[in-house]
């Protein structure tokens, strides 16, 4: 906070190749249609929490300002409710752009390491790759340990309420045969820019 930084962007901050990488991802091909009307920012239920609103994310992305968009909290706050996407008058896949940016941020290793959403996404990913299914309690505990362990204390009443109604389970769920899924996923392409194994 104390460091003083340049507030305007220079041409040299741009990475035009980045915009092309995003355009090549499913659902993101129409970003150049954007007329900056900000319908997306207006209908977004969480834009009030965002450092950059969805409208600004689209503009910065298509102009190649990679560092700005990958470091904004916006992409982690997006709940992917698709309201922006269905309301966009130019039919741009705004939620898909958010997904594309999330994968890019994780790939570049710039995701906030203790912020709830990226921690949850990575834990979810690791769990499903391994077992083929998601186990809610285990996922919650693992995510809290890595993001905000104190939060677990605040969740004790919720745990109790679930226990009382028979909705609490600590079991690690898995597919009957997860090995087939391991092989299958290893053979999928990395369409988010990473090279296949």
């Amino acid at each position: 906070m104390s460091s003083i930084q340049r507030q305007i962007r220079f041409e040299s901050d741009r990475d035009p190749g980045f915009a092309d990488e995003i355009r090549a991802m499913p659902g993101c091909e129409l970003i150049d249609r954007c007329i900056q009307c900000a319908t997306c920012s207006g209908v977004c239920p969480v834009s009030t929490y965002m450092e950059l609103t969805p409208r600004r994310i689209i503009e910065l992305t298509r102009n190649g300002f990679k560092q700005d968009v990958l470091n904004a909290n916006t992409i982690w706050i997006c709940t992917s409710c698709y309201e922006c996407q269905v309301e966009c008058p130019k039919e741009i896949g705004i939620t898909d752009v958010m997904y594309a940016l999330k994968t890019k941020a994780i790939q570049a290793g710039v995701e906030p390491k203790h912020l709830g959403p990226p921690v949850l996404f990575k834990e979810f990913y690791n769990m499903v790759r391994k077992t083929g299914r998601m186990s809610e309690t285990q996922l919650a505990v693992r995510s809290f340990i890595k993001s905000n362990p104190m939060q677990m204390w605040g969740m004790k009443w919720l745990g109790l309420r679930l226990l009382k109604t028979g909705r609490f389970s600590v079991k690690l769920e898995h597919m009957p045969k997860p090995s087939v899924l391991h092989t299958a996923l290893d053979h999928a392409d990395r369409i988010d820019g990473r090279r296949a194994k």
Binding site: K102, T103, F121, D189
Partner: peptide, 8 residues
């Protein structure tokens, strides 16, 4: 979540 980490 999964799609936020690896799309393919």
């Amino acid at each position: 979540s999964f799609m936020s980490v690896e799309m393919g």
